[in-house]
Design a protein around this nucleic acid. Structure first.
Lengths: 223, 223
DNA sequence: ATGAAGTATGCTGTATACAGAACGCAGGTT
DNA sequence: AACCTGCGTTCTGTATACAGCATACTTCAT
């Protein structure tokens, strides 16, 4: 049972469809709404304690983000990604992060790099504690921050969209501690290259990191 | 006055919000809905002859595409892009097209390249006729096709989104026949490099083409 | 027993109705 | 004259109502 939205909880004057949007995204990423599953508007609306109108608006937004697919007269279905689609997305992400890496080495301030280093240390700590969720979130955050260093809004936008589409899959793909370890090693290299402003090396490591990411998730996908 | 949607016109079983989506996109690109303009749901709904419900759904979709911005309790506003934002988008597009170019030289079939050549010839003809709209549409189509050659759905997706965001601006930027001419020249080079499967050259030309594109539009933007 | 046709139910797609917030205007006060 | 204040209008945000399509089930015929 999902707890309904408490009325005066949304102090931020956040509109309801926006809150629903976040909730649906989370439920998809967590796998509560599994790929291929049809979204029954009546049922989900009841679970969330909202009417179908703002719910439908949130679904349309998710459709544009690529997390659900709209099937005419049959509503929305949680998007199911093929192995090729995942690989394609990772390839685009690699290109985007490499582009960001080049620019980051030119313009990134010491402080912003230090902030990423701090996140990395925290991530490593989470790894050693075995705190999977925290590790995972920090991992994503580091990649987001790296792209942000390029100070290109459009670049961050498209990167975020693709990262969001893959969140569910990569979350599953990081099961098994041995997979965490290799990812950590690559991250260490990334931070070092960044601190040295070594664009070529950073680009190389980022590329390798995402190739490895593909290897980590590929087995969890049927072609 | 905008002609309302004829009821049985949508034979394709296309849902109404989808049709509205296309219409709104077109009106934004054509400048009928100018940047910064608020979208009055009542008024636009009346003009299109539809109720607010599907209209709002279409607006949410446009928001996710980045063509409009949602302001809480104040509805949607047509997104206004700064010079930097435009430049950033063009830079990402350049990266994407270069990535596509590399892959395209590896896997593109003769037929698919010939198809692009045909589009180019048609575009040149439109140029010589002075048919601006046709020229413009073929120009966009050629770029879309080039990216499609890479056979990477995610790549095409994000490219399309960015291209759509810039459509209005690039349309305006192509005013003045002298600007057409330079763009045509670059296109000729692109096709030749593609036919020769010369990835390095193609990537270089694509990069130059988009740098030029920035020069063509920059003056029409205030910083 | 199996297949086809008709019916019944549930869900989506769209319209309408209602509540609440923001903006404008008028009138009064300093 | 400028500014504050209160009211009214207009618009957004959400809920509800209704129509039409799709699917599943039942029933009948072969």
């Amino acid at each position: 049972m999902i707890s309904p939205v408490p009325a005066p909880n949304r102090i931020e004057r956040q509109s309801l469809h926006e809150e629903i949007l976040t909730r649906l995204r989370d439920r998809i990423i967590e796998g509560d709404l599994a790929p291929g599953m049809r979204l029954n508007e009546g049922q989900i609306g009841a679970e969330l304690g909202v009417s179908r109108t703002p719910l439908r608006e949130a679904i349309k937004y998710l459709a544009s983000e690529g997390l659900v697919e709209l099937v005419p007269t049959r509503g929305a279905v949680v998007k199911k990604f093929s192995a090729k689609e995942v690989r394609d997305m990772l390839e685009v992400i690699r290109t985007l992060e490499q582009t960001a890496a080049l620019r980051a080495c030119e313009i990134a301030s010491d402080d912003s790099i230090a902030a990423i280093r701090a996140l990395h240390d925290e991530m490593q700590a989470a790894y050693e504690r075995g705190d999977r969720m925290r590790y995972y979130k920090l991992n994503q955050e580091i990649h987001t921050r790296l792209v942000a260093l390029a100070e290109n809004g459009a670049l961050s936008d498209v990167h975020t969209v693709l990262q969001t589409r893959l969140k569910r899959i990569r979350y599953v793909g990081h099961e098994g501690p041995e997979k965490w370890a290799s990812a950590i090693g690559e991250h260490v290299e990334m931070i070092e290259a960044l601190e040295a402003r070594d664009a070529a090396r950073l680009s190389e490591v980022v590329g390798r990191h995402l190739t490895e990411a593909w290897e980590r998730v590929r087995e969890s996908l049927e072609s």
